[in-house]
Design a protein around this nucleic acid. Sequence first.
DNA 1: GCCAACGTTGGC
DNA 2: GCCAACGTTGGC
Length: 153
Amino acid sequence: MQYWLMKSEPDEVSIDDALAAHGSTVAWFGVRNYQARNFMRDAMRVGDGVLFYHSSCDEPGIAGIAEVASTPYPDDTQFDSKSAYYDPKATRENPRWVLVDVRATQKTRLMTLPELRSIPELADMQILRKGNRLSITPVTPAEWRCIMRHINK
DNA sequence: GCCAACGTTGGC
DNA sequence: GCCAACGTTGGC
């Protein structure tokens, strides 16, 4: 069992959107970074814990809890020439981008970046490092437990 | 809107 | 294979 933090722009897919989706499950489309893709393709397992993070918005932070709900499969938006995520170099025979399904399990209070930064145990979290841009990052069991403890207060 | 950080592209 | 130029991310 591993833990992850996954960024989503709430304008596109928020924790509320995910909870309202069929089976509270959404396809994590649009990842176009090889490192983040490789986490989904190679490391994630069904049932892994996910921190649902809202990025590029008024109040960035952890907004809910989710879990990995599928094995990896091709991201259809790469084949759609009308999509912002279209990749002309990808083909159905040779997909370049994969995704997993993510099932939202709980909307939480918003744990903002300043709050996360204020917790000494979380000082090494990848999301808090300067220049962090990766949209999917691993979370250690200790970080996960710490966040679970704080988020329900 | 700014800008630091970092990934990608493409000429050589 | 190097690396400069360029593009993107994302908090502020």
